[in-house]
Nucleic acid binder design. Structure first.
Lengths: 349, 349
DNA sequence: GTGAAAGCGCTAACAT
DNA sequence: ATGTTAGCGCTTTCAC
C-alpha cells in the first residue's frame, strides 16, 4: 500500500553518522545531548520527512499516551462541549484521546471498554450508559491500576473518582422554584433511576415536596426514556390523569420541550395552566415557546476537570488517593415556562 | 504503574508446549491450524487473561487497523448519527475509529490530521471545517496513498472520494417550494461559501429564482455563521431592510429557528407575513413554532456509506479508481412555517 | 555527550 | 499442521 518507505531514526543516524540512540534522545529532548547535535537531528528529521512510529515507541515504553473516552451519545451540545474540554486538556498534556459512544447500552459500553483495553489506554473517562448497572466491565482496568474516572453519569465505586454536579440540589432548587410560584400538585418525569443523575434528580424533587409539606403520590413520578417522542406520549398520559398537575419538572430539556408543545397543541396554556421546568440548558430550551426554565451546567468545564483529574493521577503514579469526587456548580435559569405565579387556584376559590 | 505483568503469546505457548507462532495463528483464526489446537489456545488465552498487544501487532504488520475521523463539531444529532453509522461499519469490518473535532477551524483540522498521521491511520474520513480552503494539510496522506474520503462538507480534489447529498437540488427544491407558495421577494441566509454545502445551496437558490424569472438582488443573500445568535442579529437586519422579504431560506435549522423566533417577537407573523425554510431536519425544526420546513437527509446512512467506501478501498489495495462520488437522497419536509399560500400581495392590490 | 546492544510482543517467510 | 527465526522501530541500560 504505502509505496514510499517510512523514514526511521536509523536513516537519520546514517545520514548524520551518529547512533540511533542519539537520534532518539535528540528527538525527545533528552538533556544529555548537546544543543548542536539536537538541532542537527531535528533539521535532518524535518528534511527527510521523518515521523515517529507511535507503535514502536508505545511497545517499548509500555504505555500509549492515550486516554479513552466512552460516552452514551455524542448528539448533544452538552456532550460536544465535554469532549472539547477533554480534548483541549489531554492534548495540552501531550496525550491523545480516543472517543466512542455506547449508544446508551451497557453491552456496547463493555465492547468499547475491551477495545480501549486492547489499545492500552493509560486511563479511561466514562459517562455511563442508560442501563449500566455496575462497574464489572471496567474491572480489568482497575485490576491493572488503570484509572477509570466517571463524569456526569457515574457508576458508584470506591475505586473510581467522579465529576458531577449536585443533581439532588439542582432538582431541589428547581422544584422549590415551582412550589414558590404556587404549584401544589407537582409531577416529575425522569429517566432510568439506575442512572445516578435521574435518581438524584428524583430524590431532590421528593425532598423539595416533603420540605414544603406536599405529599408525594407515586403516580406523580413517571419514568421515561426522555426522548422527543416520549414527551408526546407523556402529554397524552398527563391529560388523562384524574387530577392534572400544576407544575411539571422533566429531567431533560428535549423531553420537556416536546411534552410542552404537545400539551399546548391540546389546548393547555403554559405557563397559564401549568408550569414547566427542564434540565440541561440545551439550545432547545431557548427555542421552545414558552422558553423553558432549566438548570445550566458547563460541559466544557466538566470535560476539562475530568481530564485534568485523570492526567494528574497519571503523572504522580503514587497517588493512592484516587477516589475523590468533584462537584461542579450549576445554575437555575428561570424562563417564561415557569415565570408566572400559578393562579389556577382561582378556579377553586 | 501496571503491577501485574501482561500475558503474551509466549506464556500461552510455554503453557501448552507449542510455539508462539502457532499461538499467534490460532488466535487469529489462521486456516492451517487444527480446530483442536485452536480451541486449546483460545481456552488457555482466556484462562490466563491474555490480551493482544495491538502495538506489537501493528508495528509488525505496518498498519493500524484504524481509521481516523475528523468532523467540524460533534454537537448535532446529524453528526452523532454519522458517527454511529461510521462506528457500526468500521467495527463490523474489524477496524477501529478514532474521532476528533476540528471545532470549525482549519488549524485544528490540520493538527488533528497530524495526530492521525502519526497514529498511522489506514484511512481518513473528513467533513471539512468551516474555513478549510484546500487539501494541503492532507497531502502527506495522499503522498503515501492513504485514502482520504470527504463526506457532507467536502473539499474538492481529484484525489479524494466524496459522499454528499445534492445540496444544489435540495436548495432548488425548497426555494421553488417557497416560490410556488406565492413568494416573490426571497432572501437566502447562508454560511461561508468556501464550504461546498453553502455554496451549492446558494447556487440552488439562485437558479430557482432565475428559472422563475425572479431577479436576484445581491443584497438578498447574506453570509452568516448560521449560529443561534446570528439568527437574532439577522432578524434585526431583516426588519431594517427597505423591502421586507416574503420568504426566507436559511441554510441550517438552528439559525432559521432563532431568526424566526426573534421576528415573531418583533411582531412578524409566520407564515402569515413571511414564509420560512431551513435545512437539516434537526429536532429543533419540530420544536420551533411554527414547525420549520426543511430538508431531511439521513446521517447514519451517510456515515455507513463513507466508511464502507473507505474500507472497500482499503481491502482491494489495487483499486486505482478511488475518485468517485456518492450522492445520497434527500427529502423536502414541508411544515407549517411555509405551509400557507403567501397572501401579503393583498396589501398591494 | 554519545554508542552498543538488547528487547518490547507480534507476524510472516521459510522451513519441515 | 506446526516450528524456527528474523525483524518491525523504538527506548534504555550499561558502557566509555
Amino acid at each position: 500500500m504505502n509505496s514510499i518507505k517510512d523514514i526511521t531514526i536509523y536513516d537519520i543516524a546514517a545520514r548524520l553518522h551518529i547512533s540511533p540512540a542519539t537520534v532518539s534522545r535528540g528527538l525527545n529532548g533528552h538533556p544529555s545531548i548537546s544543543l548542536k547535535t539536537k538541532r542537527k537531528i531535528k533539521e535532518c528529521a524535518k528534511e527527510l520527512g521523518y515521523r515517529s512510529n507511535a507503535f514502536a515507541s508505545n511497545l517499548r515504553k509500555k504505555c500509549s499516551n492515550t486516554i479513552g473516552v466512552i460516552v452514551p451519545r455524542l448528539n448533544s451540545n452538552f456532550m460536544s462541549d465535554i469532549i472539547a474540554g477533554i480534548e483541549k486538556t489531554v492534548s495540552e498534556a501531550g496525550y491523545n484521546a480516543i472517543i466512542s459512544q455506547s449508544l446508551e447500552t451497557e453491552k456496547k459500553e463493555a465492547l468499547n471498554a475491551v477495545t480501549m483495553y486492547n489499545n492500552m489506554v493509560d486511563g479511561l473517562l466514562v459517562s455511563a450508559a442508560y442501563d449500566s448497572k455496575n462497574i464489572s466491565h471496567f474491572e480489568p482496568f482497575l485490576k491493572k491500576n488503570i484509572p477509570v474516572i466517571f463524569f456526569d453519569r457515574v457508576l458508584t465505586s470506591d475505586l473510581c473518582s467522579s465529576i458531577t454536579i449536585d443533581n439532588f440540589k439542582a432538582a431541589y432548587e428547581i422544584t422549590s422554584h415551582l412550589i414558590t410560584r404556587g404549584c401544589k400538585k407537582l409531577m416529575h418525569i425522569t429517566g432510568n433511576t439506575l442512572c445516578n443523575v435521574y435518581l438524584e434528580r428524583m430524590n431532590g424533587f421528593k425532598k423539595a415536596l416533603s420540605d414544603n409539606n406536599l405529599k408525594i403520590n407515586s403516580s406523580e413520578i413517571i419514568v421515561s426514556n426522555l426522548s422527543f417522542e416520549a414527551g408526546i406520549d407523556l402529554a397524552d398520559r398527563i391529560l388523562k390523569m384524574d387530577e392534572i398537575p400544576e407544575g411539571i419538572f422533566v429531567a431533560n430539556d428535549t423531553c420537556a420541550a416536546s411534552c410542552m408543545l404537545e400539551l399546548k397543541k391540546r389546548g393547555v396554556k403554559i405557563p397559564g395552566d401549568m408550569l414547566f421546568a427542564g434540565f440541561n440548558n440545551d439550545p432547545i430550551s431557548k427555542i421552545v415557546e414558552p422558553n423553558l426554565t432549566t438548570i445550566d451546567y458547563r460541559g466544557f468545564e466538566m470535560g476539562e476537570i475530568a481530564a485534568k483529574t485523570l492526567i494528574g493521577h497519571l503523572n504522580h503514579t503514587h497517588d493512592i488517593n484516587l477516589t475523590k469526587s468533584v462537584v461542579l456548580r450549576h445554575e437555575l435559569i428561570i424562563r417564561e415556562s415557569s415565570n408566572a405565579t400559578w393562579t389556577r387556584m382561582k378556579d377553586i376559590s
